[in-house]
């Protein structure tokens, strides 16, 4: 069980990517809440590709695929942009946002935080042919 989709790196195509993985997640047996988590994580991942790996819209494509592996829903997202380390983006601390000492929203950092909160596993690989992000949700 699995499928692949390639979209141009544009914000207005991210919803299509989200619907693609959400449909796969539902087919794999994830419940509504888990499907929503998968959709949001995919949204943040594709947004990061456009913002950080490609640096702008219409620079390159995003290839998404999903499969079920031993009770796990596995999404692989690949781009040909420059490598970036998501862990270097600081996560905003709510108290600092509230008292004005955080750089958020200028710097961002929420997307990676969302992915880690929403998924059971998040892995990045940076190779010569681009970046590969693997997102895993356990099927309960």
């Amino acid at each position: 069980m699995g499928d692949t989709l390639i979209i141009p790196g544009r914000y207005d195509r991210i919803q299509q990517a989200c619907q693609f993985v959400a449909a796969g997640a539902a087919q794999a047996g994830l419940d509504d809440t888990a499907v929503f988590h998968v959709e949001l994580a995919c949204d943040e991942a594709c947004t990061n590709v456009i913002e950080h790996a490609y640096g702008a819209e219409d620079v390159g494509q995003i290839r998404l695929s999903w499969e079920v592996q031993a009770g796990r829903f596995v999404i692989t997202i690949h781009d040909n942009g420059r490598s970036f380390d998501p862990d270097e983006v600081p996560v905003p601390i709510p108290e600092d946002v509230a008292n004005g000492t955080s750089d958020f929203p200028r710097v961002g950092g929420l997307g990676v935080h969302f992915m880690r909160k929403l998924m059971d596993e998040v892995r990045y690989q940076f190779e010569d042919d681009g970046n590969t992000l693997v997102l895993v949700k356990v099927i309960e």
Partner: peptide, 19 residues
């Protein structure tokens, strides 16, 4: 029906300006 980090960023920016 839906919000992502970009939506949150927009609201926080406005909140900060208003404050």
């Amino acid at each position: 029906s839906y919000i992502n980090s970009g939506g949150l960023r927009c609201l926080v920016s406005a909140w900060r300006r208003a404050k």
